[in-house]
Amino acid sequence: MTRFFRTFPMIAALAVLLVFPMFGQIFYTELVAKTLILAIFAMSLDLLVGYTGLVSFGHAAYFGIAAYAIPLLTPAGAVNAIWWILPVSVLAAALAALLIGVFVLRTKGIYFIMVTLAFAQMAFFLFHDTDLGGGSDGIFLNSKPTVTVFGLEALTLENPTHIYYFVLALTVSVYLLLRWLLKTSFGHILIGIRSNEHRMVAMGYNTFHYKLAIFTIAGALAGLAGFLQVVLTGFVTPEMLAWHQSGNVLLVVILGGIGTLIGPVLGAFTFIALQEFAQGLVDRWQLVMGIFIILVVFALPGGLAAIPARLRRRLVKGADND
């Protein structure tokens, strides 16, 4: 029964997402696609923050590096098959995470936060201040990647509805993949590291290797989100690597509930909805956003994902009092 109550809302939500483009305007289809991309990005960060206890404040670097890989690693004028450019883009982000991870994972706590930020800033200025990626203007994509299956065009990524379903399929895949991964021994080892790294070492785990592995996986998935973002918008800018991007995705994770997979997804929807709502309401929309986030942090420790458990506890308590 509890399994049913846990699964049913997710199936229902997925059904709504599946039919959504048939009813909404293109604007909203693109907005939800943007939200799902943010959800993938946030899930990848939660692997570090929520499951392994590594608070990375430079996660946008991998999002942006994968994005830049698209124009920089495709020959000019060539038609780019997605089966080539998607893995290349994700691998670029994974490689960057692997290399940066070797350095940053030797630090802990506040130092880890600062060093991840420092590396992300270096990546930001590399693209912002050099001609490598078009400087501060970024680069427009001449054409979107093509998706062909057995020589037939399966999806046209110029079409927002096609992009939407492509993003949705990948979001669901990433969610299911991570749900599996976190239930394996590997997942338990990560949680063990978050909970008590010293004990894990005493039991014979080289925790550095595990942290490097998950840092690389998280970087790759952030890269996937960055790739999809470029497919959606058609351009890359240094802003994709900026520190407030790293901050926003951290906020999404905290808002939704760290250490859960559904939390970052709920956080992404709340964050984007709030952004749209507040932007339409006042000029200083970030003030509204800030106040809301402070309220959630104070009123809902554990984030939005903790609401069902809190309601259940309240109901049980209410029943006891009767």
Binding site: L181, K183, T184, S185, H188, I189, G192, M203, G204, Y205
Partner: peptide, 19 residues
């Protein structure tokens, strides 16, 4: 206890399975 015992079996084939 499983997490402790698993430390003797850290081969990839054993790590990526439910404990």
């Amino acid at each position: 206890c499983v997490l402790a015992a698993q430390s003797r079996q850290q081969q990839p084939g054993r790590i990526f399975r439910p404990p």
